[in-house]
Amino acid sequence: MYPWLRQGLFLLPPETAHEVALNTLSAGRFIGLPRLLGGCGESKPVELMGLTFPNPVGLAAGLDKNGDHIDALGQLGFGFIEVGTVTPKPQPGNPKPRMFRLPEHEALINRLGFNNKGVDHLVERLKHARYDGIIGANIGKQKDTPVDQAAGDYLTCLDKVYPYCDYVTVNISSPNTANLRELQDTGHLRELLAELTARRDRLATEHDGHRPVLIKIAPDWEDPALNASLEVIGESGIDGVIATNTTLARTGVNGHRHANEVGGLSGAPLRSLADEVLKRARRVLGSDFPIIGLGGITRGEDAAAKQRAGADLVQLYTGFIYRGPALIAECIRAWHLDAPQQRA
């Protein structure tokens, strides 16, 4: 069914199609539409960070920025759903158009810029969510907050989402908020992680429960800088890493009419770059450090390859838009068929 639905959706501008698809899915939840599209979800639990994930395949942040569609998306078969990125206050993001399809490459370019309804809206949605899988909240800084004051934005969001989600992801790697990636530099990163882990520990005491806090990193690194930042992450006490966000590179899509659009590239062309960062993260951080693999998964084998590269779980975004809910079950099956093999 999904290929026919996609054909119609792709006649619409990308953001319009996004809204129509999510609103339809939520409206159809009451007649079982998401379950019909997703089929029977597979139960293949994974234990990580003190949490039990119903299966290893999750939805990445960005699709449901405001948590308005958690229950409908949950019925598609995901083992976990990450909502956001949200900021302390609502903000409109960058001017439109700001999302572009590259269907020949199973890719997207976006420069959305953390458009969202604000953390308070997300908290209300989290309070009312009935999805029984794992929910992560992805948090960011306000567009106009200077980098040297960014910690305040992250701490504000962390305080508010902490009681209502299962884990929190700190987004310091979007290419669409000016200077945000400076927070990956070792000096800024060390200070930010120290504040985050201290606040996490305080909140764990206040709320009688530990919520893991993860850092989402970029794929665009020189090796020495990546190694240095990963070492800071490993020493910080942070709970895990998501590798990776979108890329500024255009390898594999050069010549496409949208290739020169400003923004982050996601989808199949990102796969090899994201996998290399994932492998490096596993080598630097060691065998036990939690890592979620993201970037370029369009087939079940891509998820299995991330497992071999060192991922404990995976997330989907662009591949899900192109392939639909069938990709979820395909990735779950490939992941568990590949489980006995050793990591690369």
Rank of each mutant, 00 (worst) to 15 (best):
S173K: 02
L158R: 07
P163I: 00
T145C: 04
I172F: 01
L183W: 02
E195F: 06
T145S: 05
E182P: 05
Y164G: 13
D166A: 08
L196S: 07
P163S: 12
S174H: 00
K141P: 08
T156G: 12
N138S: 12
P163V: 04
L158T: 04
A204K: 09
S174K: 02
G140A: 11
D185L: 09
P146Q: 14
K160C: 04
Y154T: 01
D185I: 00
L155M: 08
D201I: 00
L203Y: 08
R202G: 14
A198W: 00
R200L: 08
A178E: 13
Y167V: 00
K143F: 09
K143Y: 10
L196P: 04
I139S: 12
D148H: 15
Y167W: 11
A204Y: 04
I139V: 13
R202W: 12
L189A: 03
V168S: 11
L192A: 06
E182R: 13
E191A: 12
T156F: 13
L196N: 08
T169N: 04
L193W: 01
A178C: 07
Y164L: 14
T169C: 08
L192I: 01
G140R: 00
K160A: 13
T156W: 11
L193Q: 02
Y154R: 06
V168N: 10
E195A: 13
